[in-house]
Design a protein around this nucleic acid. Structure first.
Length: 197
DNA sequence: AGAGCGATGGCCT
DNA sequence: GGCCATCGCTCTA
C-alpha cells in the first residue's frame, strides 16, 4: 500500500528533536505518528501538543530526576510513556538535549491509517472519538508501558515529517493544577480532532 | 510503610 | 457540570 510505504521510510532524524521544546511542540503539528505493531499498522496526523519545560511546575521533571521521569533527561528523540489515573497511558517525545528534563505531550491525532484497528482497540466507531485525547490516542495506537524509552528514530514507533495545514493556535494546557497560565498548548486551528477547544 | 493524588475518559444527570 | 474507576509514583515519616 502506498501510504504504508511512504510512512514507513521516513522517521524524523534526531536533530528534529534536539531543539528547544516549544519549537519541537509546534513543529510536530502536521507530522505523522506511526506504530507498526503485531496487530497492524496505525498512523495519525498530530493536531495537538503540549510542551513541558524545565522549571515548569507542571512538568514531571520539575523536582529533578526520578525513576519514572529519567527518560526525559536522556537524549532527545525517545518516547516517554507514563501511566496515570490507574488506567491511562500518555505518550511524550523527549526534546531539547541530554541532561534537560523536557518533553512534548502528544494530545490528539487525526486518524489516517488502520482506522478499523483503532476502532477495535477503542471500542468506539466515531472517527472523532479515536485519538482526541492523550490517553485515547495511546489506546487507539496500541502504545503502552513497553514503549517507554523507545527510540523514535527506529522503525517500530516513529514520527514522519509533515507540515501544518492550518494556522497554529497557542493556548494554556489542560488538566494541570500548576503552571496553568503558561501558553504551552498548541493545536491546528479548525481541526475537528483536537481534545477540546 | 502508607497516604495522597494525577499531563484522563466515560457515563450520568 | 459532576462523579469516579484504579494504581503506580512521590513524598512524608
Amino acid at each position: 500500500m502506498m501510504t504504508e510505504q511512504k510512512f514507513a521510510g521516513c522517521p524524523l532524524p534526531r536533530e528534529f528533536y534536539a531543539r528547544d521544546t516549544v519549537t519541537v511542540a509546534r513543529d510536530l503539528l502536521g507530522c505523522i505518528l506511526v506504530h507498526r505493531s503485531r496487530e497492524g499498522i496505525t498512523a495519525g496526523k498530530i493536531v495537538e501538543t503540549e510542551a513541558y519545560l524545565q522549571g515548569d511546575p507542571a512538568c514531571h521533571a520539575a523536582r529533578g530526576m526520578t525513576l519514572r521521569n529519567r527518560v526525559m533527561f536522556g537524549p532527545p528523540g525517545f518516547a516517554y510513556v507514563y501511566f496515570t489515573y490507574g488506567m491511562h497511558y500518555c505518550f511524550n517525545v523527549v526534546s531539547a538535549r541530554e541532561g534537560v528534563g523536557e518533553a512534548v505531550l502528544v494530545r490528539a491525532l487525526k486518524p489516517l491509517v488502520g482506522i478499523e484497528l483503532m476502532q477495535r482497540r477503542r471500542g468506539r466507531n466515531s472517527i472523532h472519538d479515536l485519538c482526541s485525547g492523550p490517553a485515547k490516542l495511546t489506546q487507539a495506537m496500541g502504545i503502552g508501558r513497553e514503549h517507554n524509552q523507545v527510540d523514535l528514530t527506529g522503525s517500530r514507533l516513529f514520527i514522519c515529517f509533515g507540515t501544518a495545514d492550518a494556522p497554529i493556535v497557542t493556548t494554556t494546557r489542560i488538566g494541570i493544577k500548576e503552571g496553568k497560565d503558561l501558553p504551552l498548548r498548541f493545536y491546528l486551528r479548525g481541526s475537528r480532532f483536537i481534545s477540546r477547544k
